[in-house]
């Protein structure tokens, strides 16, 4: 279990992380979201023990994260952080041995993962000869080569095409099934939404949304009603609880403040002709993110 307890990180007067707490249990995928500069990478650095928190602590299975237990953790940093002048094999042997792995085991696992990601032919190629996507795969392999129990992934999907993104998602799910803990950050909120149980949304180092993703959505009262009918847009906009109406090519999306207003809208739509769609859905994570982060900025 990974416990982040009341972590504060200060640089003189600047507070990079403000009183952050969360827990990740085995088999859980945890999403750390936020805009650029919100404090995600700093939080990962604190988790990895690269930065000492000014206050609070990070515990991995009840112990502080340090060089005695870091071999059980896999870490993938945001930017491509590979030594480009050496070959894939040399790099993985380097990173693997830094995780106290034996050479034979590294080669065995490397062969497996290269095959898994369909890049076997690059084993003896220099990193600089690889495409950005393939470099990202190598970086991912370097984080999982030690078969970690805790996987820390900072923007793992950046620079990947949809096919490779799916491959990464599949791999992360595989790790989840094996009972490993995964914490990752991403700007691609649809991925976070699709497989995260718990999230924290950071803004200026502070958690502005936190908890179970379903609960977060439930707590966020605003909803969207998708309608396909011959409705009068102006009438819809004047209905109680409606704060926005978006006309799409095949549907009309009506944004309402809470589920209390669904009935009123339904009553109006019933009076319209050619009703083929009336679907109520909870707000997406993107909407919640934009709403909350935008709101937070307005306050500032």
């Amino acid at each position: 279990m990974l416990e982040v307890n009341n972590v504060v990180l200060k640089y003189d007067d600047f507070v990079a992380v403000k009183d952050l707490s969360f827990t990740i249990k085995p088999g859980e995928i945890f999403g750390l979201l936020g805009t650029n500069g919100a404090g995600k990478t700093t939080t990962f650095r604190v988790i990895m023990g690269l930065l000492d928190p000014s206050e609070g602590e990070v515990l991995y299975n009840g112990e502080r994260v340090g060089y005695h237990n870091v071999d059980e953790i896999g870490y993938m940093i945001e930017e491509r952080s590979l030594l480009t002048k050496i070959t894939v094999k040399e790099l993985l042997l380097y990173f693997g041995q830094l995780k106290s792995m034996e050479k034979d085991l590294i080669i065995k696992r490397l062969d497996f993962w290269l095959d898994y990601f369909n890049i076997t032919e690059y084993k003896n190629k220099k990193i600089k000869e690889l495409s950005k996507g393939n470099q990202q795969k190598i970086q991912f392999i370097s984080a999982i080569i030690n078969d970690p129990k805790l996987l820390v992934l900072d923007e793992p999907f950046s620079g990947l095409d949809p096919i490779n993104t799916e491959l990464f998602v599949k791999t992360i799910r595989k790790f989840q099934e094996e009972g490993k803990m995964i914490v990752f950050s991403s700007h691609q909120l649809d991925h976070v939404e699709s497989f995260c149980e718990q999230i924290v949304v950071l803004e200026k180092g502070e958690a502005i949304i936190q908890g179970d993703i379903k609960q977060v959505k439930q707590d966020f009262k605003k909803m969207t009603i998708n309608i396909n009918a011959e409705v009068d847009i102006k009438t819809l906009e004047t209905l109680p609880g409606v704060y926005n109406v978006i006309q799409n090519t095949n549907k009309i999306s009506v944004k309402i403040n809470s589920d209390d207003y669904i009935k009123g809208i339904f009553d109006y739509v019933k009076t319209c002709d050619n009703v083929t769609l009336f679907d109520v859905e909870q707000a997406s994570l993107s909407e919640i993110f934009i709403e909350k982060v935008g709101g937070s900025r307005e306050k500032i």
Partner: peptide, 17 residues
Amino acid sequence: IEEKSSKAIETIIASVP
């Protein structure tokens, strides 16, 4: 500086002091 400028240093320092 090669390790630092390529940011590989972060992966390395995460494994060794």
